[in-house]
Design a protein around this nucleic acid. Sequence first.
DNA 1: TTAGGATTGG
Length: 786
Amino acid sequence: MGAVRGAGGSGVGGGCGRTDKAAMPVRVLKIIEGKFETPLPSHLQKEGLKHLQEGFDPTNKYIQGLVILSYPLTKLGDGTDFFKVVLQDLDDFCSRINSINILIYGKMAEDCAKVMRNGDTLVVAGFKLAKSPTAREDGRHNCQLEMSEEAGSVIYIYTKPKTTSASETASMSVAPKYVYTPLDHLKDGTIVNLYGIVKFFKPPYVSKGTDYCSVVTLVDPSNAKLTCTLFNGNLNSLPKIYKVGDIVRFHRIKIREYNGQMQGVTSAGFASLTFDGTVGAPVVPRTSSKVFTFMDEEQKIIEELRVWAASNLSICGPAAKLSGVQPMLFFDLTCQLIGKAKVDGSSFLLKVWDGTKCPYPTWKVPVEARELEGEKLLLHQLRNLTVDILVYDNHVQLAKSLKIGSFLRIYSIHTKQVSSDKDGSHIEFHLHGGTCYGRGIGVLPESNPDVKELKDFLESVELADSQSMESMSSVELDSTFNNITVLTDHQDLSNTELKTILNSTAPQQFRIRAKLRTYKPQKLHQSIKLHCSKCNSLTEVPDGDDFDCILQGSAMTSPNPELHNTSWYDSVMWTTQDQKQRKIAIHFVKPDEMLKEPEDTLLMIEGGTLKELWRLTKRFKCVIPVRSTEDDLELLDLSAPFLLQGNTKYYGCKQCSTPKPIQHLSSIAAEEQPSWEPTEIAQVLGIELLQYVFIMKFTLVDGTGALNAYLFDYEKFFQIPASEILTNSFLQQKMQMTMNTLCPPGRKLDDLPWLECFIKSYHVRDEMKHRVCYQIFDTTVAEDVV
DNA sequence: TTAGGATTGG
């Protein structure tokens, strides 16, 4: 963020902003009733353009005029910022040559580009006069003014309502310019404007006084932190923050010192805008103010903050669903309210659903039927998908006021596992009293993207489940029989005894009915390997430490700026603020204009740490770690994943891959809607993609004999992709539950369930010996077992 | 005025 962005009414003398006004080379002032807000220093004398010529002494002289044209801020070959504007001398309107080029260099260029607009009045002093090489072409003054902070130049920018036609004036008022103070430059007793990324928040709650209260902790690229305590009698006037990572703009917030730290509190006139913090999401402010300023400049700030946050802050991944809840934890739930009821004086019941089914039996809070509000039929139809959430104390008042059908985000729900005689054990959902950890309830508008997604999902569930709901009891019945737990394809084959199979020649295919006496590995995560379908090799999945080492090694090579910003990717680079001064570059592969969502975007990163990479994968579709060479970006060593997507690391076969230059990715980028499939990415980069597989050994018995059958499975058997199991504890749990059903621990052979599956026999020939092996195929664990 | 971030009780 630059130091100077503009100045509001209090900006000049009010002590806000981070630069000392007296020394400031670029100042933004206002014209009030046709007069300059602050008089110019008395030693300066005005000079008209017509008196400027080579040899003119600019000491103590100033030029005044109107900005009629400004060019985009650019960088010169040596990296210096450069900004060019054209000034028109209004006092010399009759002269044929009444405009002059001003060339501004360095920091001053950057600062001016941020605040200056066509139509502003400029006063410039301390400039250098030089011959204009473009006078013949542009018809302007044959001299040009050259300015920079180093040369002692000063620019005063006077913002003034532009002359507009009467019809335009009605809809367009000239916005005041605001100074935004970085969070590390806040001073006790000031009232400032600021931007920040929400690191923590308490959704508005009823305080013990007369107002609603919301507590918000912000961070910004200065790495400073500010906790704000905001009050308002009107719920609507508090910032509409829905999740950590949202970005806020606060105007007129009062800064105070509290317990040795700066604190923000609401002052009279406090106003806020809130934005989604997702890179690429539409920049639409959420606010209750009817009138607010928001222009391109602000949009740019939001976009910058989003990019900074995406690579510097841990923002949690996808929100929890009811299907993913685990006992004894706290989580935020996005859901729809379908019922509510008074329970007693200090607690209130909310019945909600999110379309997914909680894997555990859940608690039903007994309430009097006449107290229950909500559509009775819907409550009945969805009874297996709704959960009861009991909210307490200070949350009761807000809960009572909620409308049935509204979409909620309930923050920090506690799941508690309770044993009971009646149903073994169940899970209870509590929203305890108090506001610790942001505990509370927020109402989300229908326009919220998470709500839109939820609504679509609920609509699809509602139909499907109302049909299957009635069959629920028969499913429960099935599992009590519990003797055949694996179903297969090829139902036409009849069962063969294991003894017969052991005496048969290979290769052959059989359907069997057997019990799973034991299996290896017992530690299920050890069953995951990487398989190359080209050379048929199996390798262990490398652990995170190896990857970290490779990343650290590659971070020794600085990004090569010559490889930045090509026709198919945009680059940003920065240096870390720590002692290591590590350089990080991110190259965003340009998406189709219609597809700007970050979750569709691929990026390449140089110099990132493991942690930073994981953060980026939460936000972006694909992340490819690369390093610079002299003339291209290249992939890292193939011991490292060449691609990260979601939670999955994709590896290439070291024997079979012949990596091609990164440039080859541009062919996918050029597609209308690149899907960024790992197989496609691997192919264009010359990588032989390794696939995650489950490799297990099942010892099967049926009373006639015993044999070992291997399971070699990508996804079909457990209905869990092998690629996801290592990073998903829920899937690990699901797999463990499946194995516990197929082979319940601690049971005698007689009590084990029968399984049905397919095996095929095949020959394995080593140098010395020859043997027959068996492999499970075309078999899926039945739904009701899972 | 209120709360000033920092879980787990019913």
